[in-house]
């Protein structure tokens, strides 16, 4: 029988217990960096990185172990003085732009950044005859 129940259970952060490893989370997976500025940078970056396991979430929000290891990696690299953009670029080199919730400046994302401008121009052109720009004309 085809299972068509909405898997709404997933909504409630349901993590299958069967596929967990035998090791505890990495050291920096769930800890803040001692330097508040670095931690803020790391946190901001982690919120923009897509989790490879639960693909709708960022690694900041995911309970998946791989996401925890990735948080650890991000914090270690930031603590070592790397810039968030360098860390992002390093990950994009491995997983492609898919990993970044923020579209980068590659050509495939150009239409995305141009869309708002284009939409406003089209809109303005559509209403150009609807509004009189000169009073009393």
């Amino acid at each position: 029988m085809k299972k068509t129940v909405l898997l709404l259970a997933m909504l409630i952060l349901a993590v299958p217990l069967s596929a967990d490893s035998n090791l505890p989370p990495a050291y920096w997976a769930n800890r803040e960096l001692p330097d508040a500025r670095q931690e803020a940078e790391a946190q901001a970056l982690m919120e923009q990185l897509r989790c490879l396991v639960c693909q709708g979430q960022s690694i900041a929000d995911s309970d998946a172990e791989l996401a925890g290891d990735m948080r650890d990696l991000v914090r270690r690299r930031i603590a070592a003085g790397e810039s968030p953009n360098a860390v992002r670029a390093w990950l994009i080199q491995r997983y492609g732009t898919w990993i970044s919730f923020k579209p980068t400046d590659e050509p495939a994302a150009w239409p995305l950044w141009l869309a708002p401008l284009a939409l406003i121009l089209i809109g303005a052109w559509l209403i150009r005859r609807r509004i009189k720009l000169k009073a009393g004309a």
Partner: peptide, 10 residues
């Protein structure tokens, strides 16, 4: 064929 993500930052 390229995969990219659009999320909250955008």
């Amino acid at each position: 064929g390229e995969k990219l993500s659009v999320g909250a930052p955008y």
